[in-house]
Design a protein around this nucleic acid. Structure first.
Lengths: 201, 201
DNA sequence: GACTGAGTAGACCTGTCTGTCTAGTATGGG
DNA sequence: CCCATACTAGACAGACAGGTCTACTCAGTC
């Protein structure tokens, strides 16, 4: 039996190097802009290896997005698990986003970027939908655990905020938006918990 | 003297037809994906006309984004001016967004889309920054008129929401998010107006 | 009737794109 | 020693990119 990926020691496999190159180039410069030749050059890999491993550029893009999603999920869950109270755990989602924004050369949500270049029905759209589904489910679950009467409603509001946070961080080149997003989330959480009718129309 | 653009009656000028084609194709399929040939074919215009009028594809893209911004500004101001009270006028910004989302084939903010395909320092980035500046200034002004103690702060929060609203509307294919965004905006406006300290930390 | 400005049609140049294909190398298990 | 596996190097094909250029048409003006 042979390991498919050489994760410990030694030189990384062609697959790993391709994914690393895809992550760097696709994310920074755009899926469409970056050609196969630049990917394989950056990965130090032969063209045939790419096509043997992934079959097409589209499939490489899909694999890139899947890896990206796994990475984001991990970061956000790390942030959530730093806390114990349901309230803090819910708000921690936005701290997790902040960790992402703080990375040097953050260029916005990879799914937004890829999706802007995609055609309807593309593999990219499926990947985006999967990612959004995960975010929504997490927010709903955490809202529910926080004892909010209508968790789906709060989750929808927070998803708006989550989207906006990533967008603003990119467009304004300001990782600090995550902190503002957390503040807004706290206000929304309070408003969802408080008995209705207090807010004027 | 001769009119540069044939706005009334008659056949639209080559410039107008090119802008219309750019608006449709660039917006729906992406700036990078759509080639010059498809633009001129769709516009029913000779290639030389494009290059005589705009000089390059990049400049056509810039003109397309400028037209787009003018259109958005007009729609949002229309919505704002439907109301008299400062509070309603502020919230109307999100109604204006809703008018945009309700257009058939809404595919998200054109600046987000274009910016995802752009390189740093591009003409597209300049156009995006100009657009964001306008939004922020409008929100700040309306917040100020609504008597909020710290208008810049509320404007920043609402800009988050504004970004998220456009994003969610696209990704979830649901124009209804604008209504939710308006609700959230109302909550934030109330929170900004109320004396601080009520919100738990 | 000559001239000008705006536009058309389309060949053409150069470069790049994704994807295929051939030929060869290094390594490790049986 | 043999042979499969994983990979490399690079030529090549066919499509398409943005952009240039020539030659032509047509409407209105002096």
């Amino acid at each position: 039996m042979m390991a498919i990926e050489e994760t410990s020691g030694g030189r990384p496999s062609a697959r790993e190097r391709l994914l690393a190159a895809a992550n760097e180039l696709f994310y920074n410069e755009g899926v469409h802009t970056v050609g196969i030749d630049r990917i394989i050059e950056h990965a130090g890999v032969a063209k045939a290896s790419l096509y043997n491993t992934f079959g097409s550029k589209d499939e490489l893009v899909r694999a890139y997005l899947e890896a990206r999603q796994a990475n984001v999920e991990q970061r956000i869950m790390q942030a959530v698990e730093r806390y114990d109270t349901p309230r803090e755990r819910l708000l921690a989602v936005f701290e997790g986003q902040g960790d992402l924004f703080a990375q040097p050369d953050y260029r916005g949500c990879a799914f937004v970027r890829a999706s802007a270049e995609s055609q309807p029905g593309d593999l990219t759209e499926q990947a985006s939908d999967a990612y959004r589904g995960w975010v929504r489910a997490l927010l709903t679950e955490l809202a529910s655990q926080a004892g909010v009467p209508e968790p789906e409603n709060l989750a929808r509001q927070l998803h708006l905020l989550y989207d906006g946070s990533g967008q603003s961080a990119r467009m304004d080149h300001d990782p600090g938006v995550a902190a503002h997003a957390r503040e807004v989330a706290a206000i929304l959480l309070d408003a969802a918990t408080r008995p209705a009718g207090l807010a004027s129309r």
